[in-house]
Design a protein around this nucleic acid. Structure first.
Lengths: 147, 147
DNA sequence: CCGAACTCATTGGACATCCCAACGATAGGG
DNA sequence: CCCTATCGTTGGGATGTCCAATGAGTTCGG
């Protein structure tokens, strides 16, 4: 007999949620050594990639609420990792850029995050890790054609 | 050249987190039709499985904070889906049981949740779905021997 | 040129989750 | 009969996600 609980806990969404929560915690612990939270790390990386970029743009690319983006950038700015400068061509916008120190922190955090990922995937063989990533990529890229 | 952003967004933890968030939302939307939240559904299912069970037991099994368990059970009880009766053998405890209506809602929610899961995994073949579940199970069962 | 509609950054609040700490009532072991 | 532990409950705080609204500024149609 299959119970309702087993029915739920055997569901892929439940399983994925559990693994995601654990991985999230592991990466968060890892990059905490650099004083960054998960989203701070992502925002910093996106800022580095897209050069001078507006907050609204960052929010859209990372699916972060504008309100939360304000707080994240405040924190990053207080740590001297990013700069907010008024855009001379559109005075509504802030042009966000990465400082040299921000780039250095970003580089170190990337390494820490990769180490945490390796630890999470430790039970799998290299082949299996590629399988997992490939499967997840198909589930991720399926709905959102533009990202 | 690989940017820091791509470095992060290609990480398994990032992918899993995105897929988990989407799956969570899909299941939540599905069972919202029955007036239940995710945790309410899980608690209801655990209550159905373990028969008369104490709140503390439910909390331990589902890793839910006792404080939050109070609120969840209050809500379920207001909807007439569970009953809290004093345990005659240990008057500290509440024996939580599922009402017939709770069992009916639970059954319908299980079907809805499975439909949402099927939608999430639609891009994969049946074989690939089994692969994914097997890989996730190994990542999930690795750390916690008792669950 | 002017107003309507939009975008931008920011603020406010609603909720869920998680952690820590207490409390009165009750149970069990020494 | 104490001492310790557990149970349900209440309280507070920290964090993360989401939706609504505001004032400043921009764009576009008429």
């Amino acid at each position: 007999m299959t119970t309702d609980l087993q029915r739920i806990q055997g569901l892929p969404t439940w399983l994925i949620g559990r693994v995601a929560a654990r991985g999230r915690g592991m990466v968060a612990d890892a990059i905490a050594a650099e004083g960054l939270k998960l989203m701070h790390h992502a925002v910093l990386a996106a800022t580095a990639e897209y050069g001078p970029v507006t907050q609204a743009d960052l929010g859209r690319r990372l699916a972060v609420d504008p309100k939360d983006m304000v707080g994240i950038l405040n924190h990053l700015q207080e740590q001297g990792l990013v700069l907010r400068a008024p855009d001379p061509f559109d005075r509504r916008k802030n042009a966000v850029t990465v400082t040299p120190e921000g780039a250095a922190v970003l580089s170190r955090c990337g390494t820490l995050a990769e180490a945490a990922n390796a630890e999470l995937l430790a039970p799998l063989t290299p082949d299996e890790r590629e399988q997992l990533i490939a499967l997840l990529n198909r589930l991720h890229k399926a709905p959102e054609s533009l990202d």
